[in-house]
């Protein structure tokens, strides 16, 4: 075939080209097409009311989704989008911007090991290694084989005074020795067990010393934050 012929065939093809979408598009969900669990809907609606503009509730809504499903599942994002009247793409874009939102399944318990400067100077890399080893995650950014413990390195968590430190299920602990990792992982695996009770940030005084008193124990407040029901490991599926 001459180049001219090839070219004219290409032209013909262009004028007949037809493609099918590879999936359904997703605009603002029609509320009637999305089933949203009552409690989730209520929580998101309440968040929306707290701000002059409803979109301000996107982060709270994603928190709600993540607490409910363990991670920001596509279905969960769609549900939040349906309640908020925005596109799921909008919320997914937000979720992917922030480090604390997971767009993939993670473990029941989250261990964030600070590896930033101050902690690094005091042995954070070893601590991260120790956690990974204790939970057998095979490296940072993964979960233990039983899906119970997820470990990842994290940027400065704002607790360099207890370096090297970790955040376990949103509470801070430090300073830790690599040996603490095994204890912590075991405690997480045991239902009802307190994790590293002697290393809690709450118990620390301003200038480093131990802070005393039991009457000062702060009880978590739940006004806009129901306690996270931990997802069942079995219910998680890998994002395809």
């Amino acid at each position: 075939m001459s180049p001219a012929e090839i070219h004219s065939l290409a032209l013909e093809a262009a004028l007949r080209e037809e493609r099918e979408p590879h999936a359904d598009p997703e605009g603002v969900p029609e509320p009637s097409e999305v089933e949203v669990p009552r409690a989730l809907r209520r929580e998101i609606q309440r968040s929306m009311k707290r701000y002059p503009q409803k979109r301000s509730a996107s982060i709270p809504a994603l928190w709600a989704v993540q607490r409910r499903y363990g991670w920001c599942t596509p279905d969960g994002i769609r549900q939040a989008a349906a309640v908020m009247g925005v596109t799921p793409a909008y919320l997914e874009s937000i979720a992917s911007f922030y480090d604390l939102f997971h767009l993939e399944p993670t473990g029941d318990h989250q261990v964030l090991v600070c590896t930033n400067i101050s902690c690094w100077l005091r042995g954070a890399d070893e601590l991260l290694g120790a956690f990974c080893e204790a939970a057998e995650t095979g490296g940072p950014g993964h979960s233990s084989p039983d899906g119970k413990v997820y470990v990842r390195g994290f940027e400065c968590l704002g607790a360099c005074d207890i370096a090297p430190m970790v955040s376990i299920d949103e509470r801070y602990y430090g300073p830790l020795e690599p040996a603490d990792a095994a204890d912590a992982v075991e405690q997480m695996r045991m239902r009802g067990e307190e994790v590293l009770p002697a290393k809690r940030l709450e118990d620390r005084g301003a200038a480093g010393g131990k802070r005393n008193p039991a009457d000062d124990r702060i009880t978590a407040h739940t006004m806009n934050k129901p306690k996270r029901p931990r997802p069942k490991s079995a219910a998680r599926k890998k994002k395809s």
Binding site: P21, A23, E26, G27, P74, V86, T87, A89, S93
Partner: peptide, 26 residues
């Protein structure tokens, strides 16, 4: 304002995309 095309991730990992890799049809 169809808000189907968004940016995912952050920094130099950012990329243009849609929700759940759906087609952008608007």
């Amino acid at each position: 304002e169809d808000e189907q095309l968004v940016l995912h991730e952050r920094g130099d990992r950012s990329f243009v995309g849609t929700f759940d890799d759906r087609p952008y049809i608007a």
